[in-house]
């Protein structure tokens, strides 16, 4: 107890340092917000006034809206595919006795290790030939590959925390493998699976490198469209989009946090 005061002072110093670093890292992102509400035709800081015209511009421009909707579609589909495939993979890695397990693990980790540019070039070359560039299918496939490792790792972590004996108990109760997964395993690893899906969504939604290569002139993702915009006409619409993207990501993270808290509270109620 006597060490309380210096301890508290130390902790406050560490907290202050942490906040300072956070602010430093966030500042460039935050500067986007005032820049997006300036009334002029060019990006400028500080803004010369307040106007939402660039937000309106964004919603009026069919190009921006199309790119956004396309990115949303891709992200949702990617979240779905990566979560389903990743969960199955994680299960196979933990429970299965599959031969070539090491190879599968390597393939899963692959997209994290291989530079995304290299991956992007490779995908472009293959997709060109298969006419998959600029298609929903192509984007979803590419982003699923990128998101898969994160899904697998997140679900693996949940599975390691899960008591495998419960699956045996379910089997001994007469449940088949599928029923065991549906009624016992999945409900208990659900928080991990939900986090994994959110991860996959965010990874896809703001993925720039691969998207840049496999976009087509008429079908492109939001990050690619933003890049083009910077090249051609640095308008404050870009800042407006960036602001909304940031807000969406923060919202997704908050949603994840709330879901996780809810799951934890349910767990606490169980043991309380």
């Amino acid at each position: 107890m006597s060490g309380g005061a210096p301890n508290r002072a130390g902790r406050m110093a560490v907290n202050a340092a942490a906040y300072a670093v956070t602010v430093f890292l966030l500042l460039p992102t935050l500067i986007i917000i005032p820049m997006s509400v300036g009334p002029e035709r060019f990006l400028r800081f500080p803004p010369a006034g307040f106007s939402l015209r660039w937000y309106a511009e964004y919603f009026r421009d069919p190009d921006w809206v199309a790119a956004t909707l396309f990115s949303l579609e891709v992200a949702l589909l990617t979240a779905l595919c990566a979560t389903v495939a990743g969960t199955m993979l994680a299960l196979a890695l933990v429970r299965g006795r599959l031969p070539g397990r090491g190879l599968v693990e390597l393939l899963v980790v692959g997209p994290v290790i291989v530079p995304h540019v290299a991956l992007a070039v490779a995908m472009f070359l293959v997709f060109e030939r298969l006419r998959l560039t600029g298609t929903l299918l192509g984007f979803t496939m590419a982003h699923t590959v990128l998101a898969l490792p994160f899904v697998v790792f997140t679900v693996l972590a949940a599975l390691y925390r899960f008591d495998a004996e419960l699956e045996r108990a379910a089997l001994s109760c007469g449940a088949g493998r599928l029923a065991t997964f549906r009624h016992v395993t999945l409900p208990l690893i659900a928080p991990g699976v939900v986090s994994a899906a959110l991860f996959a969504f965010i990874i896809s939604f703001d993925e720039p490198v691969v998207s840049f290569f496999i976009s087509a002139l008429d079908r492109k993702s939001l990050p690619r469209k933003m890049f083009e915009d910077i090249d051609y006409n640095i308008s404050p619409t870009l800042a407006a989009v960036a602001t909304m993207l940031t807000a969406l990501t923060v919202l997704a993270l908050l949603l994840g946090f709330v879901l996780k808290r809810a799951a934890e509270r349910r767990a606490a109620a169980r043991s309380g």
């Binding site: 008591d163 004996e165 419960l166 108990a169 089997l171 001994s172 109760c173 007469g174 449940a175 493998r177």
Partner: peptide, 16 residues
């Protein structure tokens, strides 16, 4: 195991 129709009690309860 799920088709043997046996009852099983484990050491660590293993309730869902």
């Amino acid at each position: 195991p799920n088709r043997r129709n046996l009852g099983m009690v484990f050491q660590r309860y293993t309730l869902f």
